[in-house]
């Protein structure tokens, strides 16, 4: 029971991550693959943020009047920083991927991966 209470957050992220992973490898539509990749990245971001949490701690903005600073009172700022940058990378990779998909659609008039490969084979 203690394992469940202590670790259930990781299991939620693993479930989310596996949904994204399934979408990435099993779906044929390219846009669905990209959305799966986004879900995967969201799971990783949530995982990092949850590692930053400490019980009974507050956000890492220090109170000025405090003389002695106890690190156990503030949650870990480092994963927040890393994930702040990771979110922006997520947005930009999503934008670039959508741009590439739009170019592919203009070229082949389909978003299905197998059909694109079929068209490429016929060209040879």
């Amino acid at each position: 029971m203690e394992t469940v209470i202590g670790k259930y957050n990781y299991w939620i992220y693993i479930a989310l991550m596996m949904i994204g992973f399934y979408a990435m490898i099993a779906k044929r539509n390219l846009v669905k693959k990209i959305v799966g990749m986004n879900i995967f990245q969201t799971a990783i971001i949530l995982f990092f943020i949850s590692t930053a949490y400490k019980k009974d701690a507050t956000i890492p903005i220090l109170i000025k009047s405090q003389e002695v600073i106890d690190p156990a009172q503030y949650i870990n700022p480092l994963p927040h920083v890393l994930m702040l940058t990771a979110i922006v990378v997520m947005v930009s990779t999503f934008g670039v991927a959508l741009a590439v998909i739009m170019m592919l659609y203009n070229q082949y008039k389909t978003l299905d991966e197998d059909e694109i490969i079929e068209i490429l084979r016929k060209k040879k």
Partner: peptide, 13 residues
């Protein structure tokens, strides 16, 4: 600027 530029280019091809 990046947000505005990506939005404009993606929505209007």
């Amino acid at each position: 600027a990046v947000m505005v530029s990506i939005f404009l280019n993606l929505t209007t091809l």
